[in-house]
Design a binder for these strands. Structure first.
Length: 570
RNA sequence: CGGGAUGUAGCGCAGCUUGGUAGCGCACCUCGCUUGGGACGAGGGGGUCGCAGGUUCAAAUCCUGUCAUCCCGACCA
């Protein structure tokens, strides 16, 4: 490809509306162009990266025994009503009506359609298991799209769905996919961590996410992991053993139940200071609204509620913290002094977090203003449920060593769906005994465009993108320093043509710009290797530069071609 | 949804307070010069100043509304 003809416009400055480094670089280096919030055109360079990632995915999925198909992006409401998700999915599902007034939507995922495709096509246990996948555009109308391709509204996803006659068969395929995913990301040059996770809107029981670990910035998930054993989990799923298992207010002189004045003391921090007690000896009350009904969470003062866990615990569709006004409305008390004590349990659901178990002589709100109860002890048995966010330093649930936390970008996930979709949609096969049984299903996703963006988050420097060579849009950039110099151009073209003949993906920067411009662009775009054809041709040499290591070698014309072959063709 | 900010040429921005012919840098076109790290000179093209309404002799500028984009937060009592 001639650089002078490549459809790309690099920018001297970073775009104003980008935050994440991958977003900034993708725009500046001319890979993507925004059409509207969270929706981008993939320009030729990007399209090549997408094709590379897709190719790796296809090869590994096919090798793992899956078959590719392609399903509709526009779907009728019927299948979604059948599965029960038309009501449940919320505003992320982009809905519209066709000209006949039929309710339609843009596909955010394909469980419904694949289930209807398989149902009635494979009807015998003899034909199972089967795993089908596609690589396709998805649309999710995110509340707040951001970070460019990391959280767009429109994005490209590989989604696979497997159908089984038994849990054992599903387990096997789940492991098979986990192995395939590991290989896919490795081949993309990405190190990933497989972590336990919540199964979210897709549903099901067992699920894992593949995370690209990032130091700080753009990872949108907290991942807790143990360095001793291999335990690791998304914060929405992580469990821990509290490092202080039992707390006793008696240590601070509160061994007797008593109502004390705490005027205008509303936060846990202030209360701990006011009473001269550790916050883990206070039982905190947090009021939520779950599907417009109040839920009061009682949790140890040094802990925070993990909303996804709470959502699952109460089986709600939507959950949010209550406002102060709502606190007054539901509990008849101003916020700051709320409690499970003295409230109507038929009106307000109360959940006790696991962290509250074993607390003694603790401080708790009395559900009346400007007072707190000290030295309180539970007077009946409660069910303690885990709805708390793990903290760094908590102990690993497996080996009891302190947990660490890091940020991660979720590039893939695998779920065991069971019969969540097949049952309501009445999708069945006939078993050995002639009986109809619902399919047992699994599903497996990879964000193709997000994977590319994650690679940039992970691999870049001050000059631009440093692509892993497996997913770089081109491998080699041949730069004649002075295009007016006939000899330089001749050598550059010779090398370029030879590389082309060898099947190496190469660009020749035949623009008449000065060398500096071409070098800057080369580094910004992130070609893994650059061959500079300049003054050294007087000695029959050209310069070979590795983008990643920065190493430079002077090589003869044939030598440099051999070097590229060696590095790029196996 | 709540709060904040911003909409002026493809990109980055100034101009708005105090109304009076729409500007700068990059990019683009032409000519010259230059060619190993984002050169230089001269000339040139490109903008309904987000949109709608209002005030005014006159609005990018003032007023009202509206749309869009970005950031923060989404209540832990």
């Amino acid at each position: 490809m001639k650089m002078s003809k490549l459809f790309v416009q690099t920018l001297r400055e970073f775009p104003n509306d980008a935050e994440a480094i991958s977003h900034k670089l993708l725009v500046r280096a001319g890979y993507i162009k925004k059409l509207t919030s969270g929706i981008y055109s993939y320009l030729p360079l990007m399209q090549r990266v997408i094709a590379k990632v897709s190719k790796i995915i296809r090869e590994e999925m096919n090798a793992a025994g899956a078959q590719e198909l392609l399903m509709p992006f526009v779907q009728p409401s019927e299948v979604w009503e059948k599965s029960g998700r038309w009501e449940v999915y919320g505003k992320e599902l982009a809905r519209f009506s066709d000209r006949h007034g039929n309710k339609m939507c843009l596909a955010p995922t394909h469980e419904e359609v694949i289930t209807s495709v398989v149902s009635g096509t494979f009807t015998s246990y003899k034909q199972l298991p089967v795993n089908l996948y596609q690589i396709q555009t998805k649309f999710r109308d995110e509340i707040r799209p951001r970070f460019g391709l990391l959280r767009g509204r429109e994005f490209i996803m590989k989604d696979a769905y497997s159908f089984h006659t038994s849990q054992e068969s599903l387990d096997e395929e789940y492991e098979n996919m986990a192995r395939a995913y590991k290989r896919i990301f490795e081949r993309c040059g990405l190190e990933t961590k497989m972590v336990q996770s919540d199964s979210g809107a897709i549903g099901g029981s067992v699920s894992h996410e593949f995370m690209v670990l990032t130091s700080t910035q753009t990872g949108e998930n907290d991942v807790f992991y143990c360095e001793e054993c291999d335990y690791s989990a998304n914060s929405n799923h992580a469990v821990s053993i509290l490092n202080v298992e039992e707390t006793d207010g008696a240590k601070f002189g509160y061994s007797e139940e008593k109502l004390v004045d705490t005027p205008n003391v509303k936060t846990i921090e202030d209360l701990a200071k006011f009473l001269k007690i550790d916050s883990n000896c206070i039982l905190k009350a947090v009021l939520y609204v779950a599907d417009s009904k109040p839920v009061l969470v009682m949790i140890r003062g040094d802990r925070e509620v993990e909303e996804t866990k709470l959502l699952n615990a109460v089986g709600a569709l939507e959950i949010r913290p209550a406002t102060s006004d709502e606190a007054y409305e539901f509990l008849g008390c101003e916020a700051g002094y709320l409690s499970f004590l003295g409230i109507d349990k038929n009106k307000v659901k109360v959940i006790f977090d696991k962290s509250a178990k074993g607390m003694k002589n603790f401080v708790v709100g009395p559900n009346e203003p400007n007072k707190h109860l000290v030295g309180y002890n539970f007077k009946e048995e409660y069910d303690f449920i885990d709805v708390a966010l793990v903290k760094e330093g908590d102990l690993c649930p497996r080996c009891k060593k302190p947990l660490k936390v890091t940020r991660g970008i979720e590039v893939g996930n695998i779920f065991q769906l069971g019969t969540k979709y097949s049952k309501p949609m009445n999708a069945t096969y006939t078993d050995e005994n002639g009986q109809d049984k619902p399919f047992i299903m699994g599903c497996y996703g990879i964000g193709v465009t997000r994977t590319a963006a994650a690679a940039i988050e992970r691999y870049h420097d001050d000059f631009g993108i440093v692509w892993p060579k497996e997913i770089a849009p081109y491998h080699v950039d041949v730069v004649p320093v002075n295009t007016e110099d006939k000899e330089q151009m001749e050598v550059a073209l010779k090398i370029y043509n030879k590389l082309l003949d060898e099947g190496i993906e190469v660009v020749i920067d035949d623009r008449s710009d000065r060398a500096g411009v071409k070098f800057k662009d080369s580094e910004l775009i992130g070609f893994p290797y650059r061959i500079t054809v300049g003054k050294t041709i007087s000695e029959g040499l050209v310069e070979f530069k590795d983008r990643k290591t920065g190493e430079v070698e002077k090589l003869g014309y044939d030598e440099v071609v051999e070097k590229c072959k060696e590095l790029l063709l196996n």
